[in-house]
Every structure is written in C-alpha cells, then in structure tokens.
Amino acid sequence: MNLRLYFKYLLILFKSQMQYRASFWLLTIGQFFIPFSMFAGLYFLFERFGQIKGWDFFEVALCFAVIHMAFAISECFARGFDAFSSLVAGGDFDRLLVRPRSTIVQVLGSKFEFTRFGRMLQSVIVLVWALRHLSIDWSVMKAITLILMIVSGVFIFTGIFMLAATMCFWTIQGLEVANIFTDGGREMAQYPLSIYPKWVTRFFTFVIPFGSVNYLPLLYILGKSGGNAFLYMLAPIAGIAFIMPCFLIWQIGVRHYRSTGS
C-alpha cells in the first residue's frame, strides 16, 4: 500500500516537472556532463600510469559505472532525503507529521530529481564500453551479480542520505559533513576498495558496506576470486541490509524532533 502511494507521489511530481520542460532538458544534459569530467580525469590518469594496484582501466571503469549508476538512481528516487534540510528548515516537516502515513514514505515522496537520468545515461554508456573491452565469461549468475551490485549501491546511498537527513534534526549548519559519505563515498567507491590502505578498506566494508558493492562481487565477475563463488555473489545483500539500521536511526531523529521542535 505504501508502494502504491510512493508511485502516486512519483506521478504527481513528474507532472509538475513536465511543466518546465526546457529547464528539465537543460539540467538533464548538464547532469550528463558532470561525471563526464570525472571520467575524463580517470581516463587521463590511466593514460599516464597504466594501472592502479593491478587493476586496469576497464576494470575500474566498470566499478565507476556501477557506483555512479547507483548514485544517480538514489539521487533520483531518494532525493527527498537528500534535500531534506529544506523541508525541515521551511517547517514543512510538520505537515508530514499530521498525516496518517509513515514519515519515510512521505519524505521519499516529497521530491524526485528526474534530471538525474542524464547521469544514469552517462554511466550506462561507460558500463557498456567497459563490458565490451573486458573479456568476461558470462553466466546467468554473473549477470545477476552485476544487477545486485547496482541495487545494493542504491540501498547504501539511500541509507546514507537518510542518515544525513536525520542529522538535520539536530543541526542544519553542520550538514556539509554528510558530503563525506555521499559525494565522498561515491568518489571513494569508484575505485575498487583494495587500492586503499587496510583500515580504509575495513571501514568501507564493515561500517558502510561499499566493499560489498564494488569489490567482492567485482572480483567474482572478473574471475579474480578464489573459493566459494556463491559467497562473493551474495555480498551485495549486505549492502541492502545496511538500510535497516538507517531506518532505526531515522526513527530516533524523528522522536528527537518531536520533543524539541527544532
């Protein structure tokens, strides 16, 4: 039932967006080019260095595409949490509280950023390009793993957006710090985690499970994994589970808001 409501929100906001077609197309094209400059940077670095800790350009490009696609999807469909500070600052969160629905569905439904399709398109192109140049022994399992990687990434980014939104209940000023995990997480995870020192890898495996998106399943797809392939394949599930504690923390935030009204 909540899902149905979510789609209703989607529909009404899509209708709204279509009232401003020119600006929509302009921003969509803009969104196409933002990660383009980052990808160009990546390309030039590989042109100079050839490889990074044993990973070659197309392997990293695959990783880049998966992470950016997950990020773009989350920014499109979970934009309500990403842009939550304006909802709280404007006092419009009160409005959500006098409605008989969970705050999560309502916040998710408060905003969609359809212009992120531009960004998604760019990552699709990179993905296809990378896959064409990598010699992968494709199987159904590997295809499923690839899709799970993207889904898992979406859940992780959405979870991070929720955590950042929860912060707004305490401070709106300090919000910039959340960028570390949203934009920072994306930048960091566009390289396979193994290029970083151990402690960084551990943090991004066990605290924020990016490793279950861009490293373990990647090893499996590229045929670099030893041992039980099944475990590698299922790693993305851990990323999906990340959303659970985020839900809980969000509830705590809402409770705090309702007792202080700040």
Binding site: R4, K8, I12, K15, S16, Q19, G90, R99, P100
Partner: peptide
C-alpha cells in the same frame, strides 16, 4: 502560511493524492 497543495499541478490532482494518503 504554508501550502499543502502541489504547486505546479491542478488542484484536483492534489486532492486525489490526499485521498490516497488518507485512504
């Protein structure tokens, strides 16, 4: 001082969404 209606769509669309919110 605040609106609960969606700014860019016909009023009736907002009403229908509210119908769904309140079941």
């Amino acid at each position: 001082q605040r609106s609960q209606l969606w700014w860019d769509v016909p009023v009736i669309d907002s009403f229908e969404l509210l119908r769904d919110i309140y079941n």
